[in-house]
């Protein structure tokens, strides 16, 4: 089942022409997770019965491997679905779509600003490092040396960012960020009747799945608890 989800989301990513980006981003997340899952559950699974190989305290068991495989597959499905969305989506369009559906405008502001800032901050950190190195900063191997170096780079960054945020606040205020009421957007979201219908179908279907799984689970716990 998880393989089907994986295939479907990869297909969607391919249709959205972001397959490469989505796969790269997903591999960055999934590969370390899979390695650790193998290390934890593949080697050490005291409940396992079928021992395939043993090295001292580490025993490779069939049950452990199956468990790790299941977890990794499930996580990979979750990760790929979400990354296929986040690599495909254009943040301004997402923001317009959210605002049009009555989501507080603040959420759109925070999302788009944070995603925009993330790319500039890395660049700015680089510039601060260069400036500090020009002033004679040498990153030493020792732990205190690293802490000093981190402090010299992080404190200016934080000061700069917080100060900028303080300056942005009056500007936002002057543009009526805090006012209630309708927002107009420069960006229009592409939409069609078919898409709208499909969305409703999918929403109802997922709601049905969630309810059909959750109700017995919750009822079971409540019944068992008493």
């Amino acid at each position: 089942m998880w393989l089907a989800v994986l295939a479907a989301s990869l297909g969607a990513a391919a249709a959205g022409r972001v397959l490469g980006k989505a796969v790269t981003a997903a591999l960055v997340v999934v590969v370390p997770f899979a390695l650790w899952a193998l290390a934890i559950h593949g080697l050490f699974f005291p409940e396992g019965r079928t021992v395939l190989a043993a090295f001292g305290p580490a025993r490779v068991t069939a049950e452990g491997l199956a468990y790790a495989g299941g977890i990794v597959l499930r996580t990979a499905a979750l990760v790929v679905v979400m990354l296929a969305f986040s690599t495909w989506v254009e943040v301004p369009v997402l923001r317009a779509a959210l605002v049009r559906r009555g989501v507080p405008a603040q959420l759109g502001y925070v999302l788009s600003t944070a995603l925009g800032l993330a790319s500039t901050v890395a660049e700015r950190l680089e510039r601060i490092r260069e400036a500090q190195e020009a002033r004679g900063l040498v990153v030493r191997q020792s732990l205190p040396g690293r802490i000093v170096a981190a402090r010299l780079q992080v404190v200016p960054l934080v000061l700069q960012l917080v100060d900028e945020a303080g300056e942005r606040a009056p500007a936002l205020e002057a543009r009526g960020q805090a006012l209630p009421g309708r927002r107009t957007s420069y960006v229009d979201e592409p939409d069609s009747r078919a898409q709208r219908a499909l969305r409703w179908v999918l929403a109802v279907a997922s709601l049905a799945v969630v309810v059909s799984v959750m109700v017995p689970a919750v009822a079971g716990v409540l019944g068992g608890g008493r």
């Binding site: 603040q106 901050v121 917080v162 009056p170």
Partner: peptide, 30 residues
Amino acid sequence: LFAGILPTLPTTTLALIPVALVLNIVLGQF
């Protein structure tokens, strides 16, 4: 929680939040 809290935040706080998010991510990677 978003529906309950977000509209009540003053603008100074709102402007700080994206900065905090980026700090979380950047310092976490640091």
